[in-house]
């Protein structure tokens, strides 16, 4: 089991699993509406030309997230 780290530091195409979502209020609600909750598997599939925001691939769909928003999410690397 690898150590949890902030989603902002994730590399492109690294397989990830969400550990915690600490955002509260509207941001927290929007993040959860999109299905970003602990246990969700995801992968950063691309970054915008200026490295922010990033495109995050979930099992069924893709969403965008700013780095400042990714700061509220910690992830763990998934093996294989």
């Amino acid at each position: 089991m690898s150590e949890p780290f902030c989603l902002r530091k994730a590399k492109v195409n690294q397989m990830l699993k969400i550990v915690t979502v600490s955002a509260a209020g509207e941001l927290g609600r929007r993040i959860r509406d999109m299905g970003l909750i602990p246990g969700t598997e995801c992968k950063v599939i691309g970054k915008a030309p200026l490295r922010d925001p990033v495109a995050l691939r979930l099992k069924d769909f893709t969403l965008t997230l700013r780095n400042s928003e990714a700061d509220h999410i910690t992830v763990r690397e998934q093996e294989g």
Partner: peptide, 12 residues
Amino acid sequence: GECTPFVMELPP
């Protein structure tokens, strides 16, 4: 006020 969150779907 804060920027509206950019958590947004990228539809296929």
